[in-house]
Simulated scan of single mutants.
Amino acid sequence: MSIRIVPEGELTQAAGEIPPLLLPDPKTLYLTRARRLELLAAGHAMADYLNFCARIAHAQHALVAEHPLALPARDAYFTECARHGLPPLGSAAWPRDAVWQDLLDALLGKLLPGTTGIVADAIMTLQGMERSEREARASALLAGRFDSVSAAEALFVWAALSVYFSQLAAALKISTVTEPDESRHQCPVCSQGPVASIVKIGDKAGLRYLHCTLCESEWHMVRVKCSNCESTRDIGYWSLEAQAPGIRAESCGDCHSYLKVMALDKDMALEAVADDLATLMLDAATEEQGFARSAINPFLFPGS
């Protein structure tokens, strides 16, 4: 089943129906992530990097408050996307506003003080770069061409793009409908992949949602199903329970990929991006079994 976005008011959700899509709340999510990263850093082998990523998340939180974005009207664009079943913020169709580069400049300005080494070099390189070059890097990353952008530069470009897209996603006035085809491996809002999946608690107890690595939206997918190829035939689970309670790697024997599943009933403080980054030991153990990660973490790019 795929999720298609339709104009607000065209469809209403029936009582008790599973919400197919949860739009983000950028006013709180980056602060929650920053605090979780700081908590996870205590005593962690990657403490310095987790704390640096917490700085980025704090800066993202500040940008949301300092640079609030309104969703452009863009005439009939959103109606046409709904008509043709296209993600409204998909990189193939959405014409990015130059404001995302203003967000990047502000982010870099917040992070450069106190930063040294390769990371500081990457920040200064981006600061001195022509906007056309930065647009080219953004386009490459959104198209999945990670090897064409250095991992250090990708970290900051993606962080700014996330603040841009998450605010636009939060402002969407839409409804959603599920349709009978197999295409839930990409975000129905921006077309990017999930960083991890979350099994919810509360009024959505037991439901699994995939968390977008870019716009921070979440979309429903049934459990015990590959989030990459949607096979249900050969699903396996791997865990390091003592080190990471509530987190398992869900592997697929058909496409040989895996994605982490985080159960909030085991640990309600789990946060998709932060806890994915802090459990790279589980990635290593799963990859030793012959599976390849199907997603990127926005703080860990496989660039050059």
Rank of each mutant, 00 (worst) to 15 (best):
D265L: 03
C215E: 03
P302V: 09
V64C: 11
L63N: 11
C255A: 05
S304F: 06
E10L: 02
A143G: 14
L111S: 03
H84M: 04
Q243E: 15
E230D: 14
E10D: 12
T115N: 02
E288D: 12
S294Y: 03
P24F: 03
M129G: 05
G43K: 00
I174L: 15
T125F: 01
Q192M: 13
D102M: 04
S148I: 08
N228T: 08
A70E: 15
A169P: 00
T176L: 07
L168Y: 14
S139I: 07
A154L: 10
D75I: 01
A170V: 01
L11Q: 14
A106N: 07
A42T: 15
M262N: 09
V163F: 10
I201K: 10
T28D: 06
L277H: 08
Y30S: 04
Q60N: 14
C187F: 13
P302W: 05
L50S: 12
R134V: 11
V157G: 05
Q243C: 01
L259E: 09
S162V: 09
C187A: 12
Y77N: 07
G85A: 06
A152N: 15
S239F: 02
L22A: 02
L111R: 04
A272N: 08
K204W: 06
A205C: 01
D203W: 01
A120V: 05
P26Y: 05
S91F: 12
P194N: 13
L23R: 10
A284W: 11
A272Q: 09
P194V: 07
F291P: 10
L21F: 03
Y209N: 10
F301M: 15
E80P: 02
E287R: 05
K200C: 09
D234M: 07
V119I: 09
V273A: 15
K204R: 15
K110D: 09
Q127L: 12
L282G: 07
S294V: 01
A92I: 00
A154F: 10
A98H: 09
G117E: 10
T28K: 13
R248Y: 04
S251M: 03
V119N: 10
C190G: 07
M281T: 08
L155C: 13
K225T: 14
V157Q: 06
H61Q: 12
V224K: 08
A42W: 01
A269N: 11
S175Q: 14
E271W: 04
G43Y: 01
E38R: 13
M1D: 03
V157E: 03
V163Q: 11
A15F: 11
P188Y: 07
G9T: 06
A98P: 10
L86G: 00
H84P: 00
L89H: 10
A263K: 08
E66C: 08
F156P: 13
A65V: 00
P26T: 03
G303M: 06
H185V: 02
L142E: 15
Q289H: 15
L37Q: 13
C226W: 04
P298D: 13
W219S: 02
T176H: 10
G202M: 02
I247G: 10
A41P: 04
I198Q: 13
T125S: 09
Q243K: 15
K110H: 12
P20E: 08
G90D: 03
A284K: 14
